[in-house]
Simulated assay, not measured.
Amino acid sequence: MKAITIRQPWATLVAIGEKRFETRSWRTNYRGEIAIHAGKKVDVKICRQEPYRSILQKHGYTAERLPLGAVVAVGRLEQCYNVKADLGTAAILGEEADLVDGAEYIFGDFSAGRYAWEMTDMRLLKEPLSVVGRLGLWNCDHPLRN
């Protein structure tokens, strides 16, 4: 299964379904099942800012209680959109000119020219699976159980 390492708190936000788009400087043609791996670093300052703090808290997380160095969820990489325009409080994606705003916009870097990877069907693992992450898309050879 393909996997992607994401720094915390963004990995958890994707895993719990509060963040639908993972933004990257590069595009991917891959579509299909994907494991979300939480990196070993946490941006503690971001975790204490709104809307991060209250959304994490709603799901029982704090900056000090986020899984690290582990696969936390499995879902689907549905689509990869080019960011057409960053309007400052919203962004325009893809040829259909889909609008991203609110917390979703705040949770990503939607600078024009970047890519928004649409993540769907996220399922948290019952227990995070300790795995060494990697850069880019990588193959997770460990059996993942929900």
Rank of each mutant, 00 (worst) to 15 (best):
M1E: 02
K2W: 13
A3Q: 01
A3I: 13
A3K: 03
I4R: 06
T5F: 01
R7Q: 04
P9Y: 03
W10K: 01
A11D: 00
L13E: 02
V14G: 01
V14E: 00
V14P: 04
V14T: 04
A15M: 02
I16H: 03
G17Y: 05
E18C: 02
E18G: 00
K19I: 06
K19C: 05
K19A: 02
F21R: 01
E22R: 07
E22L: 05
R24M: 08
S25K: 11
R27G: 14
N29M: 10
Y30C: 02
Y30S: 00
R31N: 04
R31M: 05
G32P: 06
A35W: 09
I36Q: 02
H37D: 14
A38G: 03
A38T: 04
G39A: 07
G39M: 05
G39N: 09
K40S: 12
K41P: 11
K41L: 11
K41E: 14
K41M: 06
V42C: 02
V42W: 04
V44Q: 04
V44N: 01
V44K: 04
V44F: 12
K45N: 14
K45V: 15
I46F: 05
I46S: 01
C47D: 05
R48N: 15
R48S: 14
Q49D: 10
Q49M: 15
Q49L: 15
P51F: 02
Y52K: 03
R53F: 14
L56I: 01
L56K: 04
Q57L: 15
Q57W: 11
Q57M: 15
Q57F: 14
K58F: 06
H59M: 03
G60Q: 07
Y61F: 08
T62A: 07
T62R: 14
A63T: 12
R65P: 08
R65V: 13
R65M: 14
R65D: 15
G69P: 08
V71F: 13
V71N: 08
A73E: 06
A73W: 09
V74H: 07
V74L: 10
R76M: 15
L77R: 07
L77I: 08
Q79Y: 15
Q79E: 15
Q79R: 12
C80M: 10
Y81S: 06
N82P: 11
N82F: 15
N82H: 15
V83Y: 11
V83C: 08
V83A: 09
A85N: 06
D86I: 01
D86F: 00
L87H: 11
G88I: 00
T89Y: 01
T89G: 10
T89W: 00
L93S: 08
L93F: 06
G94Y: 08
G94P: 07
E95A: 10
E96T: 12
A97L: 14
L99T: 09
L99N: 00
D101I: 10
D101L: 14
G102R: 10
G102P: 11
E104R: 00
I106A: 08
I106T: 13
G108K: 01
D109H: 14
F110Q: 02
S111D: 09
A112C: 07
R114Q: 03
Y115F: 13
Y115L: 11
A116H: 03
W117A: 13
M119D: 07
R123Y: 12
L124Y: 12
L125M: 10
K126D: 04
E127I: 11
L129S: 03
V131P: 04
V132G: 04
G133Q: 10
G133K: 03
L137A: 11
L137P: 13
W138Y: 13
N139T: 13
C140A: 06
C140S: 09
H142R: 03
H142S: 15
N146T: 12
